[in-house]
């Protein structure tokens, strides 16, 4: 995998940072000249993953959320969103649409949105250690400036 560009963003799991996170990712991938629809898909998926960290990974505290974004050959974007929170006991159950452990009007659609809006998603989690979500999306239009 030939990485053409890469950025790391770390921030505190405060809900006011949700807008910052999706805007920062969006700003970084703009160099690939995505369509408005592709950009909206990425922003939405990032917003879901970051919200999961804020609501579920660090329920009673503020921990750090780590985002790593890579741009590789063939206009592929790889976004890794990681926390060191409580972890998910049963990942298979957690990614089921409408499943939610929260009673705070969460729709239980976070992972369904990530799956539907990105090309692929992988979730790794260990109770007490944290969760990593890796999402990929290839931008159809080309034109990345390799400089």
């Amino acid at each position: 995998m030939n990485v053409l560009n890469e950025v790391n963003i770390n921030f505190l799991s405060k809900s006011s940072n949700e807008g910052f996170a999706r805007s920062a990712v969006s700003a970084f991938v703009l160099c690939l000249d995505p369509t408005i629809s592709e950009l909206a898909d990425i922003k939405t998926a990032v917003s879901e993953a970051v919200t999961n960290c804020i609501v579920h990974a660090y329920p009673d505290t503020h921990g750090t959320i780590y985002i790593n974004i890579k741009i590789t050959e063939q206009n592929k974007i790889i976004i890794k969103i990681r926390d060191k929170g409580v972890g998910i006991e049963d990942v298979k159950q957690a990614i089921q649409p409408l499943f939610t452990t929260s009673n705070d009007e969460r729709a239980g659609l976070g992972f369904a949105v990530m799956q539907s809006f990105m090309d692929s998603i992988k979730v790794r989690s260990k109770t007490g250690v944290g969760t990593t979500v890796i999402m990929e999306k290839t931008i159809i239009r080309t034109g990345y400036d390799k400089r």
């Binding site: 909206a40 922003k43 879901e48 919200t51 009007e105 969460r106 729709a107 659609l109 949105v113």
Partner: peptide
């Protein structure tokens, strides 16, 4: 201008 699944939760609620 933007919404994630929190908007769905808002409508359902």
């Amino acid at each position: 201008s933007f919404m994630d699944s929190s908007g769905i939760g808002l409508i359902m609620g």
